[in-house]
Write a protein that binds this DNA or RNA. Structure first.
Lengths: 204, 204
DNA sequence: ACCTGAACACCGTTCAAGT
DNA sequence: ACCTGAACACCGTTCAAGT
């Protein structure tokens, strides 16, 4: 179980001082991006986002030089939600199987809010140059917390690596996303993974 | 285990009668597409393909109205390779674990030839309107053959659905593709899935 | 320091003209 | 029946001019 440094992140966009109009445009762009991403997925037209925000396209590029920078900003509070989900799941005191079902289910559900986001997270996990990389670290850390908790109680098979599990689950989220599966329809896949990492119930 | 109708497919593109020059252009386009897809992935510029083939862009659209039609054609013999792989694996007489390792490994390796192909296969699996859908049926059928073979020997857990396994493995292939993982680096994920579908060794 | 919007570049797609 | 390539449309990206 690879331990990941706990992700303590100051909210970067509020920390940075900005002129009042710039801040207003930043906020309008983020709100517009959330709307449009929700409607058309993470590959939506950036021009449409600028239009919806009522600013020129240049303004969008000033604040978010690449599409991934914009996605990263949109994902901020969302990744914090996922992180707090992991704490809740651990605190709930469910058995190992239910813990994983709940955790993986929430993960897939959250990541599926924006179409295309799952694929982004999936590939950014191993790409340090991606603006989303740091956000992924939060998710990796949250997942590691849950698995370490179960491993500490001897509930996992030997040699289970939380990064591999994370890759798998984000892969499932991507399948669910691209095939337009509901959360329920992704549980059979999640159950296979859960069977694959839980120690056999027969062994005490 | 859902049984799929065995995929008997006549080579459609040789069956269709064409003018000699049209056939030549068709062949040149396919060859160019294979080259360019191999270099730049399945999202490569269609214009580049037409240029490499030495034909006008209109000719490409005449033969392949959509990008997926072109990908479908490029995948033809490739999907036949995968299908014959499944027969070889079954005939090899390996134990259940090695059978799955070999089969899944070949699957991921084959699907990874063109970047972006795994994602295409993944989403086309559940999309009947996709030109690639039929090709996916070949893969689904091949995978079902292998799993049915193991299920017949009582090696699989109850309730394992080959379609779900196929979704999972194509998801892993997509992760491997987008994260630029080697085949070796994807085996930990495959092993988790294998553990998840194999009956416990302890139970006779 | 920031915004605007015209301008450019790139690429997918169509279609009139040609054989 | 098929091919060509100019033309169009769309969208991401840049940058000179303006505040």
């Amino acid at each position: 179980m690879a331990s990941t440094t706990p992700a303590v992140i100051a909210s970067e966009e509020t920390a940075k001082p900005r002129r009042a109009d710039a801040q207003r445009n930043y906020d309008k762009l983020l709100a517009a991006a959330r709307e449009i991403f929700r409607e058309h997925g993470a590959q939506a037209s950036l021009d449409d986002i600028a239009k919806r925000a009522g600013v020129g396209p240049g303004t969008l590029y000033r604040h978010f030089p690449t599409r991934d920078d914009l996605i990263d900003a949109v994902m901020r509070e969302w990744s914090e939600d996922v992180d707090s989900d992991s704490d809740e799941v651990i605190a709930a005191g469910l058995d190992a199987q239910e813990t994983l079902r709940t955790w993986f289910g929430k993960f897939v559900e959250n990541i599926g809010v924006y179409r295309g986001a799952a694929a982004k997270v999936m590939s950014a996990m191993d790409d340090e140059s991606s603006p989303i990389y740091r956000k992924c670290q939060v998710l990796v850390g949250a997942n590691d917390k849950v698995l370490t908790h179960l491993a500490g109680r001897g509930e996992l098979r030997d040699g289970v690596d939380s990064r591999e599990v994370m890759r798998l689950v984000s892969g499932i989220a991507t399948v669910a996303d691209q095939s337009h599966l509901s959360v329920d329809e992704s549980t059979p896949m999640l159950d296979i993974v859960i069977q694959g990492i839980l120690r056999d119930p027969s062994a005490p």
